[in-house]
Design a protein around this nucleic acid. Structure first.
Lengths: 114, 114
DNA sequence: CAGTATCCAAAATGATACTG
DNA sequence: CAGTATCATTTTGGATACTG
């Protein structure tokens, strides 16, 4: 999903297939890096790190470091990120609520085209 | 963006980076294939065709063929697709309205990290 | 703990040509 | 007009090892 509704290269940035899940994960509460890694099934450290960097750059997520040893790094939603996440969640809820419809349509489609 | 809020392979389907733009484009009115191609800047026929097939499969978009020569094929949003598109648009509007914030955050970020 | 670096595999996309 | 087929390329992601 692109941040900034622009398709032209140079502006905006794509948060990739993982960005939406990070935004959703942070909706309930702020989290440490490892908590995000554990709560987002299937994400690698590399992709989580990369996705977070882009979201921070875009101002949707903030990052706070406690320079202890070992360090603690916490992430959370900024106001803009919160609004984005809320609207994203609304869309997900809509899709989930209509999952029955979607599934049967998919099955009909796959049956018709096999 | 995944259709069906599931990350596990086998279910849901990814409408890719173009799906959101198709959903947005069809928000105002139904369109023919070539109209979509012209209104979505940068999309190739291949990707448009592929994206539309997935959206139809997912029941977010309907497809109607007039078997004339040459054929006319029209696409539009189903009720589920309309709801999805509305919520997507709401998120885009939010991001657009906050583009100023986002841009300055990006610039600060890029300055700080160069 | 929270990353980065490197290398490789896989998937998505683009360009071009072609068809009913 | 509305696609599909094929191939090249770009992009993305995963595995692994390493570091402050």
């Amino acid at each position: 999903m692109p941040v900034l509704a622009e398709r032209h290269r140079g502006h905006g940035r794509d948060v990739g297939r993982w960005g939406v899940w990070v935004l959703i994960a942070l909706r309930d509460r702020q989290m440490r890096f490892f908590e995000l890694r554990e709560s987002i099934e299937g994400i690698s450290e590399k992709m989580l790190s990369q996705t977070l960097r882009n979201l921070v750059r875009d101002g949707l997520v903030w990052r706070e470091v406690e320079p202890t040893i070992p360090p603690k790094v916490t992430y959370g939603l900024t106001p803009v990120g919160q609004g984005t996440s809320d609207r994203l969640a609304s869309m997900f809820d809509w899709i989930t609520d209509n999952a029955g419809d979607i599934r049967s349509t998919q099955m009909e489609f796959d049956t018709a085209n096999s």
